[in-house]
């Protein structure tokens, strides 16, 4: 599959030709909701939904899956969703990890830096109640005790497909 893209690029000098559905390894349910998700974002967020991610002590598996959302297979950007470098540009704060004491202040400052309206979504087991690390002397067991959380994406780690599906759920719920 990847080789085909390469062949395309050599032959035609451009690489933006979309893969045919049969060739793409993207799960069919993500493909199916593509149009609906796009319309929703168009209507409710003025065409684009910007996400800032923050790691408060996760093992980086959640990060890896969030990054995978924007690889050419899931290609989350085609729905109008993008990951941004600054909280000032973000509509959503994605929080992973059980909140290490060291990261508590950084998390609050990141949230405060976001413009209204803003939403917090937690990703992965650790972020709900600390997960495996909830009894630790150094974790704050759960984002919801610190920030208002609107949605939780379960999994250890949740697959890109699941992340996209849950984001759609969230957008449906937003008034």
């Amino acid at each position: 599959m990847s080789l085909n893209i390469l062949k395309n690029s050599i032959k035609k000098g451009r690489v933006t030709i979309p893969l045919s559905l049969s060739e793409s390894a993207c799960p069919p349910d993500v493909e199916k909701m593509r149009q609906e998700l796009k319309n929703l974002i168009h209507a409710k967020f003025g065409r684009s939904l910007h996400i800032r991610e923050i790691d408060t002590g996760s093992c980086c598996a959640c990060e890896s899956e969030i990054i995978a959302c924007s690889n050419p297979i899931y290609d989350i950007q085609r729905f109008g969703i993008d990951f941004v470098a600054s909280p000032r540009h973000a509509d959503i704060l994605l929080v992973t990890g059980p909140i290490s004491r060291n990261m508590e202040l950084a998390l609050q400052k990141t949230y405060e830096a976001m413009p209204e309206p803003k939403f917090v979504i937690t990703v992965g087991e650790c972020a709900t109640n600390g997960g495996l690390f909830r009894d630790s002397y150094y974790t704050r067991s759960g984002v919801k005790n610190i920030l208002p959380v609107v949605l939780h994406i379960p999994g250890c780690p949740p697959s890109p497909q699941k992340i996209i599906t849950y984001l759609q759920l969230f957008i449906q719920k937003v008034p």
Partner: peptide, 11 residues
């Protein structure tokens, strides 16, 4: 570093 310290060894 140390920002993601979770106390794994104690856990």
């Amino acid at each position: 570093l140390g920002w993601t310290h979770r106390g794994v060894e104690k856990i």
